[in-house]
Design a protein around this nucleic acid. Structure first.
Lengths: 243, 243
DNA sequence: CGTCACATTGATATTTGTCAAGGCCCGTGG
DNA sequence: CCACGGGCCTTGACAAATATCAATGTGACG
């Protein structure tokens, strides 16, 4: 057990209420009393820099995390294989670690894509708190259920779709997630590399690069390195439909 | 609200305790008291025949289901597309509907692959029961978390793997699931069509057929229609590894 | 016995992966 | 300040895997 420094905490101030993500976060529906108790258990680890692991595959499972700023990729390294598989990206307000609940060890690593801050929820304390606050339980269940639906969406992207359809669906998904969190729907940074996107979509990184170029030439998007501008949501959406 | 007939129920007998799946089921960890309460809310709808829908995409979400016998596929029909995407298969003891929790409507259809029996858990009553029994809540969370891990496994299968690796992984996954439920790990029925398998794995049905033939010629499996025998678990596992 | 859904098999076309070369950006160190 | 190096991205040529189209086979069931 290491003692984790708690920067930015002023006595008497509740983290969550002041947090700009509060309305998008799992804490959204909590009563004042639950919020205060939540504040008691929440930890604020040091920020992680690009490439640092928040969670290492195989480590004991101890905590859930909520992304405050920045972003992460979740990667699985499989026995007998050298390359890693990117299974998820996490954006601010999203919960990390739900798939480890009920397990003793973490089934995947979670790595920062840029300098990122998280809130840490030691699971044991979190669980105890959830026993007493039905609203917290409900939010947790809804988060998990939402993630299951996200996975179904991803299956639809991966299965039987062309490279263009996958990339269009991926960009639209990101756009929507940013939008829901109060950022622009049309303009955002791709914190992940082309290789990460490729792994996530089941494409070679070269294919990702080529299709992005094609989209740009078609006037659907503008890309400059990692900065993305969507110029035609409708155009991208149309790609997902059958001919 | 239709009144659902309750066949096979004798007064004073608890469904779950007598059920052969009890040890694999969500009810496994329930105390005697919780089990009795569970018995109160559980419904046993008529069996579904092959092709009948247990859940229709877009319908209001009202219940979770536990598969008792038989099997189901979960399919998503997407806007602007005619073909359906198979996102899941459900075997006995598995929970159906977790991805709809917190939603008003069902995001996917669930269709019987053969004559199948389920237990129905009206969600409102189930939730009320879960408020009072922590063991039930825990089991529900573990079920959802397990499904999230299953999805990650599926991502690894779908992404950047050859047709052979996908099919090998799929068959091994089925084998393991049957095994955990007390059936043979080496011999089972493929209740789903080649087209369903193809949809689930992102392959054309012809490819599924060809790869199965190849596996058979290599002595890895024996297939006769829908009956499958695994002759070399190790051989199938080896396919999943890098060269 | 015929029909229908499903499965197999073959020939061909297309997509995408692989390999290879070169460019760009950024941080580091001379 | 500039040159260098490394990581990442782009682009091209080619090869391989898989989809598609089409024909035929098979088994279940009325």
């Amino acid at each position: 057990m290491t003692t984790i420094p708690q920067p930015y905490r002023r006595p008497g101030e509740l983290y969550c209420q002041g947090c700009s993500l509060h309305s998008a976060c799992m804490t959204r529906a909590l009563s004042q009393g639950a919020l205060e108790a939540f504040d008691e258990i929440i930890q604020q680890p040091q920020p992680l820099k690009r490439g640092q692991a928040l969670v290492q595959q195989g480590q004991p499972f101890r905590s859930l995390y909520l992304v405050r700023t920045g972003s992460f990729k979740q990667v699985v390294r499989q026995a007998g294989r050298q390359d890693e598989q990117v299974v998820h990206f996490f954006l601010p307000s999203e919960a990390v670690g739900l798939e480890a609940i009920g397990e003793t060890h973490c089934p995947a690593s979670v790595v920062a894509l840029e300098t990122s801050f998280v809130c840490e929820l030691p699971f044991e304390a979190f669980e105890a708190l959830a026993q007493r606050h039905e609203s917290l339980r409900g939010e947790l269940m809804r988060s998990m259920s939402r993630e299951l639906r996200g996975d179904q969406r991803q299956f639809c992207l991966l299965s039987g779709r062309t490279a263009e359809q996958r990339l269009a669906g991926f960009l639209l998904g990101l756009s929507q997630r940013f939008h829901l969190r109060g950022y622009s729907r049309y303009r955002f940074q791709l914190a992940m590399s082309r290789a990460d996107i490729g792994s996530h979509l089941g494409l070679a990184l070269e294919t990702v690069s080529r299709v992005m170029g094609r989209f740009q030439r078609q006037g659907l998007i503008r890309v400059a390195g990692r900065e993305l501008t969507i110029r035609s949501l409708e155009g991208l959406e149309a790609l997902g439909e059958d001919p």
